[in-house]
C-alpha cells in the first residue's frame, strides 16, 4: 500500500494513535473531573470544577470522533470488527458520555432542588464512560477473534477479569488527570484537596499498571515475547525506567506544590503507557491477527483523507491552543464569564 515509498497505512496508524492519545489526555481530565465530583460536596466548588472545562470539553471530546472517523476511513475493516466486537461496552461508553455531556448544561438550568439529579448524572456518566472505555481497551488487548472479515467472538467476551481491571485502571488514570488538571486551574481549599488526592492516586495507578503489565505478559505469551525477546528487553526496560521516573517526578512536584508539573508528569505517564500498548500490538491494528496493511482502505482513500489531515490538523492544534490560551488562568469561586 505504499505510494512512492511512503507507507500511508503507517502514517494513518500514527495519526489515529495521536488522535486517541489527545482524547485520552484531554477528555481524560474532563472525565476525571466528573469522577472526582463525587468527592466534592460544596456546590460552589462543583461550579468551579465544571467551569474549568466548560469552554473546552466539547473540543476535547471531538478527538474521540476523529479517532473513530479516521479509523473508519483509513482502516474500515478494523473499524467494522473492533466496533462490532466491543458493541455493548461502547454503547455504555456512549450512554455515559450523553449523561456527562448534557449535565454540563442542564445542571445550571435545572431548578435548585433538581440540580442534584444532574450532578449525579455527571458523576455517573463520567464513571460509566471511563470504566467502559477501559473495558474496551482491555478487550482489545486481549485480542478480537476474526473469521472471514467478521467478528467471531461472543457478545460478552469483554466481561472478563482482565478487561474489568483495565476499566479500574482507566478510572484511576482519568481521576489523576482530573485532580492534577485542577491543580493548574483552581486555588485554595479545592486545590489543596486535589493535591491531597493526587498522591495516593498516583501510587494506586502505578500499582494497577504493574498488575496489568504482569497479567498481560502472563496470559499473552506472544506479547511477552514482543517485550522481552532479543534486544527488545532493553526497550521495555527503558519504558519501565521512564515510567518510574514519571511517578517520582509527579510525587516530587506535588510535594513542592508545583501547579503545572504534576499534570505534565501524569500526561507523560499516560504517553508511556500508550507507547507500551503500541509496542505490544504493532504492527497489528486488530490483535492478534489483522495488520495495519490488511485492514487498510485502498490507497486512494487513505491519500484523499491524508491530504486534508496534514493541512488541517496543525490548524486545529493552533486554534485549540488559542482557545485554551483565551481561558487561561485560575478559575475562582463566583467567577462569571460574561
Amino acid at each position: 500500500m505504499a505510494i512512492q515509498g511512503i507507507d500511508l497505512s503507517i502514517i494513518w496508524g500514527v495519526i489515529i494513535a495521536f488522535g486517541l492519545m489527545m482524547y485520552v489526555i484531554m477528555d481524560g481530565f474532563d472525565l476525571g473531573l466528573g469522577i472526582l465530583f463525587a468527592l466534592i460536596e460544596d456546590s460552589r466548588e462543583r461550579d468551579v470544577m465544571m467551569n474549568t472545562v466548560a469552554p473546552v470539553w466539547d473540543g476535547n471530546e471531538t478527538w474521540l470522533i476523529l479517532g473513530g472517523a479516521a479509523l473508519y476511513g483509513a482502516f474500515p475493516l478494523a473499524y467494522a470488527v473492533i466496533l462490532e466486537a466491543l458493541y455493548l461496552p461502547l454503547v455504555l461508553v456512549l450512554a455515559g458520555l450523553i449523561f456527562r455531556g448534557v449535565a454540563f448544561e442542564f445542571r445550571f438550568k435545572a431548578e435548585a432542588h433538581r440540580r442534584h439529579v444532574w450532578d449525579k448524572a455527571f458523576i455517573g456518566g463520567s464513571i460509566v464512560a471511563t470504566f467502559f472505555q477501559g473495558v474496551a481497551i482491555g478487550t482489545y488487548i486481549s485480542g478480537i477473534p476474526v473469521v472471514d472479515r467478521q467478528f467471531a467472538g461472543g457478545a460478552l467476551d469483554w466481561l472478563a477479569p482482565f478487561p474489568l481491571l483495565c476499566g479500574v485502571g482507566l478510572l484511576l488514570t482519568y481521576a489523576l488527570l482530573g485532580s492534577t488538571w485542577l491543580l493548574i486551574k483552581t486555588e485554595g481549599m479545592l486545590e489543596s484537596r486535589m493535591r491531597h488526592y493526587s498522591r495516593p492516586l498516583t501510587y494506586l495507578l502505578a500499582l494497577v499498571i504493574v498488575l496489568i503489565c504482569a497479567w498481560t505478559a502472563w496470559i499473552h505469551a506472544d506479547i511477552a515475547q514482543r517485550w522481552l525477546a532479543g534486544s527488545h528487553w532493553m526497550r521495555s526496560l527503558l519504558l519501565a525506567v521512564l515510567a518510574v521516573g514519571a511517578v517520582v517526578m509527579i510525587q516530587k512536584a506535588l510535594r513542592k506544590r508545583h501547579s503545572h508539573l504534576p499534570f505534565i508528569g501524569v500526561a507523560g505517564l499516560v504517553f508511556l503507557g500508550y507507547l507500551g500498548l503500541a509496542i505490544s500490538i504493532w504492527p497489528n491494528i486488530v490483535p492478534p491477527g489483522i495488520s495495519l496493511w490488511q485492514a487498510a482502505s485502498p490507497p486512494s482513500s487513505q491519500l484523499f483523507a491524508l491530504i486534508g489531515a496534514l493541512f488541517i490538523i496543525p490548524v486545529i492544534l493552533v486554534y485549540t491552543f488559542w482557545s485554551y490560551h483565551v481561558f487561561r488562568g485560575k478559575v475562582k469561586v463566583g467567577d462569571a464569564y460574561h
Binding site: G59, T62, Y72, P76, S297, F304, G308, I316
Partner: peptide, 27 residues
C-alpha cells in the same frame, strides 16, 4: 467494511474541517 473507503474519508473530513472548528470557537 464494504463502503468505509468512501464514507470513512468523508466523515474524517467532516470531523477535521467542521467539528473541530465548531468546538474550537464555541467556547
Amino acid at each position: 467494511d464494504f463502503a468505509g473507503s468512501i464514507t470513512g474519508p468523508l466523515l474524517t473530513y467532516e470531523v477535521l474541517t467542521a467539528f473541530f472548528l465548531e468546538a474550537g470557537f464555541l467556547g
